[in-house]
Design a protein around this nucleic acid. Structure first.
Length: 273
DNA sequence: AGTGGCTCCTGAGCGC
DNA sequence: TGCGCTCAGGAGCCAC
């Protein structure tokens, strides 16, 4: 499930292959996967355009085209964007193929939650989900004071707040559980109960797990692949996510599993307070 | 404003 | 072997 480190890894592997390449055509196999500009044809907006740049905002990947349009890709659970040097056959989960002057870009998604949207670049800040996104945790301008201010807007559990993309952009279930473990904070804790020292620890932990995730090329728990079709390695470094019932790698205590903020959550009662 | 439930989807894993 | 069930979940939406 692509979160910030996975989308960043896709962006980095994609940059090497598709930057400055011209789009010749696009084929849509499952129309619900794409959202066009009202009154415009998705494929026509792509044809003959050059991919001028790539960026990432939270869990969204942005492909900037030279006609002042931007493709926004949200992978949700099982979305993939893979570059192939040669023409490649599609499978039943391939929803969009973007044909480049050299190679093809395949968008596939088993669970069909993801979407590719094209918007006019000048209106990009009006796109609701982008406009509402909270700060980028790895931006230089982000710090523990800003984290504290963002958290103070909420009155929920710390886990629910960290998953809220308007509080902070890019965290999903995996990195939230990992950051909370590293910070020694229980996911059910109410935000108001957090001490400044814990906010600082949380800030450091969020940055660390995200950076380690990027360094490892993301987490391939099940479906995630980068733009070259390769798995990430961070799943080998996970301390709690997916390890319910197993021994804590730090204290040896059996890890606890519970529903917090409607999500499966794993934590250590020995290490997290 | 918060939570919980529903929705969109498919595949894995399980019991029988 | 295969059926039916449960679970996984990002995020928008709605009811309470």
């Amino acid at each position: 499930m692509p979160e910030l480190p996975e989308v960043e890894s896709i962006k980095r592997t994609l940059e090497k292959n598709i930057l400055k390449k011209r789009i010749l055509d696009a084929k849509i196999f499952w129309p619900s996967a794409v959202i066009s500009v009202p009154g415009e044809d998705f494929v026509e907006l792509l044809k003959d355009k050059i991919i001028d740049g790539l960026s990432r905002r939270g869990k969204y990947l942005l492909l900037h085209l030279d006609n002042n349009y931007t493709l926004i890709v949200h992978f949700r659970m099982t979305g993939r964007l893979v570059y192939y040097k040669e023409k490649t056959t599609v499978d039943k989960h391939t929803h969009v193929v973007i044909c480049l002057e050299q190679g093809e870009l395949h968008y596939s998604d088993i669970r069909k939650f993801g979407r590719i949207q094209i918007v006019s670049t000048e209106n990009i800040h009006d796109v609701p989900f982008l406009a509402k996104l909270g700060p980028e945790p790895l931006d230089e301008s982000f710090n523990f004071i800003l984290l504290g201010q963002q958290l103070a807007k909420k009155k929920s559990s710390i886990k629910a707040a960290l998953l809220d993309q308007t509080v902070l952009a890019g965290l999903g279930n995996i990195y939230t559980d990992e950051a909370l473990f590293k910070a020694g904070v229980l996911p059910q804790r109410n935000i108001e109960s957090l001490k400044v020292s814990e906010i600082i620890l949380l800030y450091d932990s969020i940055c660390e797990v995200l950076k380690e995730g990027i360094k490892a090329g993301g987490t391939s728990f099940r479906d995630y692949r980068d733009a070259n079709g390769n798995k990430g390695l961070f799943q080998e470094s996970l301390m709690v996510y997916g390890r319910a019932g197993q021994a804590c790698k730090v204290c040896g205590q059996k890890l606890t599993k519970a529903k917090v903020a409607g999500r499966t959550t794993v934590y250590c009662l020995g290490c997290q307070k």
